[in-house]
Design a protein around this nucleic acid. Structure first.
Lengths: 179, 179
DNA sequence: CCACCCATGTAACAAGTTACATGATTAC
DNA sequence: GTAATCATGTAACTTGTTACATGGGTGG
């Protein structure tokens, strides 16, 4: 049940239309909770019906017309309760680790190229996160709690990408030069 | 499309019944691709229909009777092709990072306790992985490729848990003593 | 006027989750 | 014989994905 809360968070940061939300998911919140525009529209409908958000009044509601949403008090309360709640970490799901396990059984033909590809993807993502960090969280100065929290989230992204880069590098070394 | 390949891998390692598979998922393959028994039975049915596995001949097939499956050549070929293929890494999904981002907006009340809870869960998982490593991959000796691959997978699990332990520790320090 | 992009959606499906149903076997 | 456990399954639902549909506005 995380998508609605992701949307509430995004809308509290800034009221938006569905498409704007989609774009922001593509380059910010979506870094740790991705969603397509179809999911977002579906969820916006549900949240509106639940009375947690509302569309800003438009003169004539027409299909294809931009609709801007804002969070209602009930929505903020719901999000606040969710933040204070508990939820067990979901076991990870990595198709790549699974493929390596399968390779132990049927042979690792073709695996090396894929590891190299993933390595370069993760290196790219890591560089992107580091650029964001440099831009949005410069210097070591006293910061507000919201800023510290946002920085912690970004640090999570950075360290996770670093993990993948290191693991993939080690895996390539261990696999040996030829396969 | 990873679950069928997880099952094929498990069945190649050892032909099993649905319930046995479920148990093995709970303590091995499931560490990086979890599944419930309902998912497994559903998928076994599909794989059998697709001619990739078969149930070992039973005298009289009755409901509630144990059914053991083995992989057919077509199944091994499919798994082999999948290992050699490509698949982009799925963007991560962490409800905990999302909650921290939400906390930056609505306040972090109650978050600290949850971080501590997750820290202890991840410490437990890390200890479990390290125990498995010590048991199954001792000493530094020349090993076969399958063993090296399996060890790499486990190293992935270890380092990922270590990431969480370190990030959670840093987050708790950054949040400060009281909240 | 038509191609293109903005914006909102529908429909169909696939994957994962939760709750429950049913028969077989074993321990007491 | 009955309770517990083993074992296989159904049903209903939620979440996520993929493909397509519809209308509005803008540039050429």
């Amino acid at each position: 049940m995380s998508l609605p809360h992701a949307i509430l968070t995004a809308l509290l940061e800034k009221p938006s239309s569905g498409l704007e939300l989609t774009r922001r998911f593509d380059k910010s919140i979506g870094y740790f909770w991705s969603a397509t525009h179809q999911q977002i529209y579906r969820e916006l409908g549900k949240l509106e019906q639940a009375g947690q958000i509302r569309a800003l009044p438009a003169p004539v509601p027409v299909r294809g017309q931009r609709k801007e949403y804002e969070v209602l008090p009930a929505g903020r309360a719901e999000l606040s309760a969710w933040v204070g709640g508990t939820e067990d970490p979901k076991p990870m799901r990595s198709a790549l680790l699974l493929r390596m396990r399968a390779a132990a059984v049927v042979g690792s033909a073709g695996l090396r190229a894929e590891l190299e590809r993933h390595l370069s993807l993760h290196q790219g993502q890591l560089a992107e996160y580091l650029a964001i960090e440099e831009r949005d969280f410069p210097a070591e100065r006293r910061r507000s709690e919201p800023d510290r929290l946002r920085h912690l989230v970004l640090r999570g992204g950075v360290e996770l990408e670093r993990f993948w880069v290191e693991w993939l590098t080690a895996a390539l070394a261990e696999l040996g030069p030829e396969e």
